[in-house]
Amino acid sequence: MSKTKKSEFRPNDFVVYPAHGVGKIMSIEEQEIAGMSLELFVIAFEKDKMTLRVPTNKAVESGLRSLSSPDVVQDAMKTLKGKAKVKRAMWSRRAQEYEQKINSGDLIAIAEVVRDLHRSDDQREQSYSERQLYEAALDRLTREVAAVSGSDEADAQKKVSDVLVSRAA
């Protein structure tokens, strides 16, 4: 079976690239690189004002995936409702694990980071690095929730924060 899985992604599809979150395929273009003709997905990440070119033959290897299904989004929301699981490891080790989860592109793993780092008003302050990781995870989560539900980010943010607040109650 040498048939390539090229047809999986098309222009105007929303996709998730692990290191950058939700982007939109603008086009598929041919480019000559080092004397070889290469077919590339041109993916725009509007919020980061960034364009990424991913070779179509390396797309799946690089972790590019379609948006999560509504079921996965439901599971992510359920994950948010759970009790925070904070390991007793040193912060640097935990921060590394959170970073890996965020960049895995796995929505459930990202939801776990949001859950574990979320602070309600009556809890202690977050350190700067905790806050950075929390916001990165929250941003990835809300962007994908918005893209899957076809709503805007503000709606998705409200949905996520409602779940987090209901958990604290």
Rank of each mutant, 00 (worst) to 15 (best):
G105T: 03
R131N: 12
K6Y: 12
G82P: 03
M36Q: 11
R131S: 02
A109Q: 14
A34I: 04
K78T: 09
M50S: 11
L141S: 03
T79S: 13
A19C: 06
T142K: 03
I110Q: 10
R88T: 10
T51Q: 12
L67A: 01
V163W: 00
A136Q: 15
R93W: 09
I102M: 12
S7A: 12
R124C: 08
M36Y: 09
Q123L: 01
A84Y: 02
D121H: 14
D116T: 08
E29C: 11
L107S: 01
A44Y: 06
E61D: 15
E97W: 02
S127P: 05
R140T: 02
D122V: 05
Q31V: 09
A146T: 00
F41M: 05
Q74P: 02
M36T: 07
L64W: 00
K85E: 14
M50C: 09
G21K: 04
D122F: 06
W91L: 04
H118F: 15
L64R: 00
A169G: 11
A84Q: 04
A136M: 13
I33D: 08
A168Y: 03
F41T: 04
E46A: 15
G105C: 12
R94L: 01
F41I: 02
A59D: 03
M1H: 11
E99S: 15
S92W: 06
A156N: 04
R167W: 03
D139Y: 10
V145Q: 05
F9V: 10
M77G: 02
A109F: 07
A44L: 06
S161V: 08
R115T: 08
G23N: 13
Y17G: 00
S37C: 05
E130C: 10
V42M: 13
L164Y: 04
V73H: 08
V86A: 09
I43L: 00
Q96M: 07
E8S: 12
A168P: 04
L52G: 11
R140L: 02
P11I: 01
L107D: 03
A76R: 03
K158L: 12
E61V: 11
T79P: 02
D116K: 01
V16M: 08
N57S: 15
A59V: 03
Q126S: 15
F9K: 08
A95N: 06
L40I: 09
D71W: 01
I28V: 13
D155W: 05
S37A: 12
